[in-house]
Design a protein around this nucleic acid. Sequence first.
DNA 1: CTGAAAGCGCTTACAG
DNA 2: CTGAAAGCGCTTACAG
Lengths: 337, 337
Amino acid sequence: MTRRVTSLQVAELAGVSQSAVSRVFSGASASPATVDKVKKAAETLGYRPNVLARAMITGKSRIIGLVVAYLDNQFYPEALERLSNALQEKGYHILIFTVPNATDGVDKVVQDLMDHQVEGIIAASVSMSSSLAETCARAGIPVVLFNRGQPGSGLSSVTSANIKGGRMATQALIDAGHSRIAHIAGWDGSLTGRERREGFEAAMADADMIPFAIVDGMYNRDIAAQSARQLMSGDLRPDAIFVGNDHMAFAVMDAVRGMGFQIPQDVSIIGYDDVPLASWPAYDLTTVRQPVNRMVEATVTTLLSAINDTDPYAETIEIEGPLIQRGSSRPPKGQMQ
Amino acid sequence: MTRRVTSLQVAELAGVSQSAVSRVFSGASASPATVDKVKKAAETLGYRPNVLARAMITGKSRIIGLVVAYLDNQFYPEALERLSNALQEKGYHILIFTVPNATDGVDKVVQDLMDHQVEGIIAASVSMSSSLAETCARAGIPVVLFNRGQPGSGLSSVTSANIKGGRMATQALIDAGHSRIAHIAGWDGSLTGRERREGFEAAMADADMIPFAIVDGMYNRDIAAQSARQLMSGDLRPDAIFVGNDHMAFAVMDAVRGMGFQIPQDVSIIGYDDVPLASWPAYDLTTVRQPVNRMVEATVTTLLSAINDTDPYAETIEIEGPLIQRGSSRPPKGQMQ
DNA sequence: CTGAAAGCGCTTACAG
DNA sequence: CTGAAAGCGCTTACAG
């Protein structure tokens, strides 16, 4: 419980003014002699600048607020880890805000964020009311939506190319010769969910095929599993299911196998995200990769440039990822036939 | 980019002194009339106190530093989410620090943490050098080690009862009639790893049994999988493996199945943690539950009481969890026989 | 390059 | 209860 060492004490010991100490630590110009004296004094005293005081004056907290709703989807821990690392490299840190209920809790949380003088906000898979987006804009706090677009909000976003991804997954199913293709979609209240579905519908339409069924899986394991069971219990069953994300796809695979069906012999399953678990043998899930590292890079770049250049333009960045063909779906016909 | 509203502006509009405004927002006493005027003025101006300024003066940042090494083990995302929620409820927030390499990176990071004037530190599954622990102590910043004890460090820790857990897992294997029981241990450099192994050895000794083998899995999927392959490729094979955590156990199951063995017919597998995935049908892993919610509660309680009461005593809290018997291991003999 | 001084936006004794 | 004033630990023009 020793009192913290201040720049004044360092100044005294070094025999210079307090301003000199400040200059040395804030990277302003100072003579080599001064730098030396100050550094030495600081070392013996164990001095480190008070980040809070600096932040208050400069108006730069070097803190980024991260809003997340849930972490159970394996996609997020990975993204969070990479985001934190990338930001730390640039001298920023992440202040975490978990929003209890994904729908409206965000608003309170963002006020809290702004109170903490964050320099920017990353909202992962949560939507913001437009009034809230406006509040942030007015306060000059850039927001980047991660893995969740929100057209018309004026907010920047970084997502994968969801429509294209949905198309690719569906096309792979069509190319494999499937004729009764169902889609357990991501939450219809989210743009990612809608766009992946859109891709599905477009690919089907292009092939002059009628979707076997489209149901909303709500990005929820239980709902997805139940939907799968329902789909598979009729007389006429789908022979392929494109699922809105991997997290649900695992539940779908569990449910389908639990009914005694073989994957992919009885039904092909394709997911979306390519989380680590997708490649583990127990699931071996064919899926559309969301390139987390590139999405993170884009997010950090976008956010930091908005912070530093006070760039007023919202950017909508879509990053394409490949389809990863694995064992949960039949391979395309004609290929290696 | 409007300039932030300050308490002075509110004071002017409300017709009171700046101190009065401050009192209203810091919860100090003020007459109802004043409170009313101030609140009204604040509302019309959109005023919110600057948390940074407050933190600097009071010395209370209301920020807890969380140090994590990796998030791929499914145990951590869940813990993080709960920690964040619990802390938010108490008015604290989590500033995240990911440490690049688990071993020595911690030291730099903690200095960074202290610069940010965090009121407390939670270190999840990372060890701290004793000199570092001392630094924190001297600065009056309480540290709680989460899921990783460090005896002699003088640091508080919250873990599950690892020795007992290791015993339980092993006993379950013994009770099931296994005779060639191996242990793929957690990292030997960590107390959790050593204690679970200790529990394993104690249970074996009590039963007058000799371990089939003990290898260090380093809490690493690849190493664990390779160890499993080695164990299972000899002429004399183990008929049961207790794995140091679920994260490795999944890899072990994948590897064992990949060699054509049946679980649990050919070999029983038991893990440790009971992460969500353990209960999914694809693995259906018997495991020792680490009660995340109670561990989080204990962590938050310990940390906050250390912060507020400047409680100088390090607490070592161990929380017991049950063995969850699932399909990856043979059930105990005699039971339902 | 350097020091004295003002000021960031608050909290908190101190008188009244 | 309330206002004037000092001060938290810094940064940053401003002169020299």
